[in-house]
Amino acid sequence: MIGPELRPLALVTGASRGIGAAVARALAPGHDVLLGGRDSAALHALAVELPGSRPWPVDLTDGRALAEAAGGIERLDVLVHSAGVGLLGTVAETPASTWRRQFEINVVAVAELTRLLLPALRAAGGRVVLLNSGAGLSARAGWASYAASKFALRAFADALRAEEAGNGVRVTSVHPGRVDTQMQREVVAQEGGDYRPESYLRPESVAGAVLLAVTAPDDAALTELVLRPAGP
């Protein structure tokens, strides 16, 4: 007797809220989803909402815990890097600790998790999607360390794409403009501005771009997707 066909497996980091949670919801109809993040309560609540998903709680900056969590994954169809941090400040105001934290989470953790999961991604001919930012395409005053980390993330994606093309692994960078999330509220508060949700992209709109990259036919390599708010 032949058992039911296994559904594709996706891992989404930063799935406890914002864009990551929206991506998990977008992928859930066609994938079993591992919900990555540090807020176990939020991950369990989302898992109840999405049949076929389960929490994958891990601190991405803890190398030993990350290796242990990734070790049980033998085949992975989709890896979405949504976890990240946005700390603002001018070059004159930003200490080395902020630069290190921003790069540790936005670049080093991404690179290490990808490295650990490459055998599983190669086995499935998987898709890697990196949630970047408009700041990964151009930098502006007050965003130096954040933009630098996102430029580095884009370079990582380009190198990974070139290295893994022969192994059937597709790599897409998604560069959204400002998105209506808690992180955006914190950024606007740092900037001292008024928060207007209607001025920003919805997390679901960004998740739609991720789904497009994940479901693109094999003859279409979506290398970069750029989204901007359509409003004034």
Results as ranks from 00 to 15, higher is better:
A70S: 15
A123L: 10
V226S: 12
L118R: 14
S199W: 13
L222W: 11
L46G: 09
T94Q: 09
Y200P: 01
Y146I: 02
E204A: 15
V169Q: 06
A147F: 01
L9M: 14
L227N: 07
E74R: 15
L225N: 07
V214D: 11
A123V: 04
V107D: 08
N167L: 13
P229N: 05
A92F: 00
A147K: 08
G72F: 05
R25K: 14
R7P: 03
I105F: 03
P4K: 07
L117H: 11
W143D: 09
W99E: 12
V171P: 05
G136A: 05
V169F: 07
E186P: 00
A41I: 03
A157W: 04
A209C: 10
A109G: 13
A139P: 12
Y146L: 07
S133T: 04
P51C: 04
L27F: 04
Q184A: 13
A230F: 05
L116H: 12
V48K: 11
D59L: 08
Q182E: 15
S149L: 04
A159R: 01
L11D: 09
N132Q: 11
G36I: 06
Q182P: 07
R115W: 13
G14R: 10
E5R: 15
E112C: 02
V110R: 05
G134L: 15
R38I: 01
G84D: 06
T94S: 15
A144M: 02
D62A: 07
F156G: 07
F151M: 10
L6C: 02
G134E: 14
S97N: 02
T61M: 11
A67P: 10
D194L: 10
I2T: 09
L88N: 06
P57K: 01
R161E: 01
P119F: 12
S145V: 14
H31Y: 15
V108Y: 10
L113M: 14
R75C: 15
P229D: 04
P232G: 13
I73Y: 07
L6W: 02
P8K: 08
Y195V: 02
Q102D: 08
S205L: 06
P8A: 12
V210R: 12
A21F: 08
V169R: 02
L130K: 00
G3C: 08
A24C: 03
A10C: 11
G192D: 00
A67H: 10
H81V: 06
